[in-house]
Amino acid sequence: ADQVSKEIRRLASFVPNVKLLTLCGGIPLRPQLASLVHPPHVVVGTPGRIQELIDQGALSLDDIRVFVLDEVDRMLDMGFQEAITSLLKQSPTSRQTLLFSATIPDEIRKLSRSLQRDPVEVATADGADLPEIEQQFHEVDGTRRFDALLRVLTTYRPESTLIFCNTRRDTQDLADGLAQRGFSALALHGDLEQRDRDEVLMRFSNRSCAILVATDVAARGLDIDDLPAVVNWELSTDPDVHVHRIGRTGRAGRKGQAWSLVAAAEMPRVAPIEARTGLSVRWSKLPSMGGSGEPILAVMSTLCIDGGRQEKVRAGDILGALTGDAGIVSTAVGKIGIFATRSYVAIRRDQAATALKRLRDGKIKGRKFRVRAVD
């Protein structure tokens, strides 16, 4: 939802006075209630929180013109069909309803027939993005999977890697294990609070975290610019999920790498993946430990500023404060993310301590803000 909101804000930047709200669970209700005093033009949110705000009389769907269901196949997998149907029944029948999905199983066609009038289906060709992704499958001993992962990472040393696990427990355990070995690694899964998720995603997207270990649900729809590599810690039981996983890399015409660690028990999952992609998998021998096994570190560090859109803080204000009085060269400043009440800025690691001190001693837009290092 946050990614969609950011993209809509970018697209609407030349349209005056567009009010957009992101309404999701996991964060306090009170600020959202306050924001709804003046009705928004666009709402991006999750079904549960939107229904909660409707029940409190804070949000009305009476004037909805367009209703979009994104990642609808996963919404159904997560049990949201009843909530979705309820929300649509509360909106005008004259609305336009758009469904977006990575796959179109029978359940979605049935949902379409019940929610849409004379719908038009638009589909991309299967496997259209696969040629830009170099896949390698490695047969591993299930008891030595972690050692196999270290070999792959330390040999190829991608600057940024997304690792997929099948369970939340594996996700956290693997991220902790990599961090204990000195790697810059974080976990992303459903047990995290919304603020923690935001920080994890921001750190990964701005290169202040080198490795993100995630479950499929947590990583659904992730749009990370120029992601060099994806690793399947374990093969998915669903070939469509496998295609979705590796599709996080090799995007927008770029080339990507995808490595899959496959134990004996997972071998029956390989043939359905070949059938789904129309490609024979490429089996490769595991490399020996590369680079003396040195861990992969992040090239950037993240600073958090306790001021965001509500304080009218813009990316240009932060960049100006850093390159002006703080004296940081612009090439040392990375991605800047602005949220409602806070902002994040990536700084080259060797300049982070200097930037932190000078931002704390100085001002942004003529005001003092609390600034802290996230990592």
Results as ranks from 00 to 15, higher is better:
F80V: 03
G291V: 08
C165M: 09
T85D: 07
E139V: 03
S94G: 12
E71G: 11
T331Q: 13
Q135Y: 03
T124K: 02
P16N: 11
Q51N: 10
R144W: 01
T155D: 06
P47F: 06
I108W: 06
V333G: 05
L69V: 04
I108F: 10
R370L: 13
R49K: 12
S91R: 02
D141Q: 09
R109I: 09
D176V: 11
A353K: 14
W283I: 07
V15G: 02
T124F: 08
R195W: 04
V281W: 03
P47G: 09
S280M: 05
V43Y: 01
E234H: 14
P28L: 02
L212M: 14
R220G: 10
Q136T: 11
I347S: 05
G308F: 07
K255P: 00
T103W: 03
K312H: 14
S35I: 00
I347G: 04
Q351I: 00
K89T: 05
G127V: 13
L261V: 11
S301R: 15
G334R: 02
P228K: 00
E199I: 15
L227A: 03
R168E: 09
L322H: 04
I104S: 01
W233L: 05
L59Y: 01
K110F: 12
Q51S: 07
E139Y: 13
R181M: 12
T341F: 14
A252T: 09
R367N: 15
A214N: 05
D306M: 09
Q172D: 10
L303A: 11
L286K: 03
S330H: 11
D173E: 15
I296E: 01
V313H: 03
L201K: 04
S114Q: 14
D77W: 02
A332P: 13
E52M: 08
V140Y: 02
D2S: 13
R245H: 13
A219P: 09
K285C: 13
